[in-house]
Design a protein around this nucleic acid. Sequence first.
DNA 1: CAGAATACTTCAAGACTTGAAGCAAGGCTA
DNA 2: TAGCCTTGCTTCAAGTCTTGAAGTATTCTG
Lengths: 146, 146
Amino acid sequence: MAAPELTAVVAATHDIWMRTNDLIGQALAGHRLTPATFQALWVIDPDEPPPSMKVMAERLYCNASNLTFITNQLADRGLVERIVDPDNRRSRLLVLTAEGRRVRDELVRTALEKTPLAVLSDDELRQLSTLLHRVMRSDPALAQRS
Amino acid sequence: MAAPELTAVVAATHDIWMRTNDLIGQALAGHRLTPATFQALWVIDPDEPPPSMKVMAERLYCNASNLTFITNQLADRGLVERIVDPDNRRSRLLVLTAEGRRVRDELVRTALEKTPLAVLSDDELRQLSTLLHRVMRSDPALAQRS
DNA sequence: CAGAATACTTCAAGACTTGAAGCAAGGCTA
DNA sequence: TAGCCTTGCTTCAAGTCTTGAAGTATTCTG
């Protein structure tokens, strides 16, 4: 293989992500959520202005109709509400309900406790963060997140 | 948030993975593959002894019936074959066909070219690899891969 | 040898994803 | 400002993915 380190890093990234999902599966199921719906919840930061469906679709790398489905799942569970964007009445903003904020907080906390990445020291986490942010800044689609 | 670095790292891991998937989607579609089926192909190393369905399920964090489905997808496309494990006739070993090896090689190469992680220098990749392998060694389920 | 365990398959149900078609709102231009 | 194009979202149909329960064949164990 031409780039064994790169191969190992790509594989490790995937493995760690899948393992994290595996470890929080029970907690998600307790709220009738799945990796896909949890990820949608994750990317709605309650301290930021509510994202539109369009913005959510970009964050989750999915298309509009997919996001309609995911949003319905969250709305059916009482975790988010759609409101009309007063600045653009075609657009729907996704707002966490009180329950949505509570569940998001709890599950994010669980994910951070259970992820294998939690074994790293503060210093190692900073190193890792530096490297990953360098990667993200290099990619236009990722740069607008970090 | 109690651990902002950890949060950022978990999010970055996921974002980079999803972005990589996004970037190779075209190449996968060219072989009628999806992220799930490509991942299955990825974890069959042609230079190692062929894995059983059971081993594959562990590697992919999925259950046996799920793996039957994924294997059927790959077998229908002529990329893998099931053979009876001579040492345990309950077990089926997954062997890449010649076409399977070719497609795997091509798509792995594409993934390594397109992943945003490819911007890192050799030195940075080594740093990243060191950190991620430390994470993997700390988790029993991950340790047996790296 | 009988019963339990293992490896896989089948089936049914639900969750996810995509693309095509449609609707309402906003933008543009003659 | 009417007509047309674009945007943001929804609906629908089709296909993919995932799970759990039940079933089959094989192996293990007492």
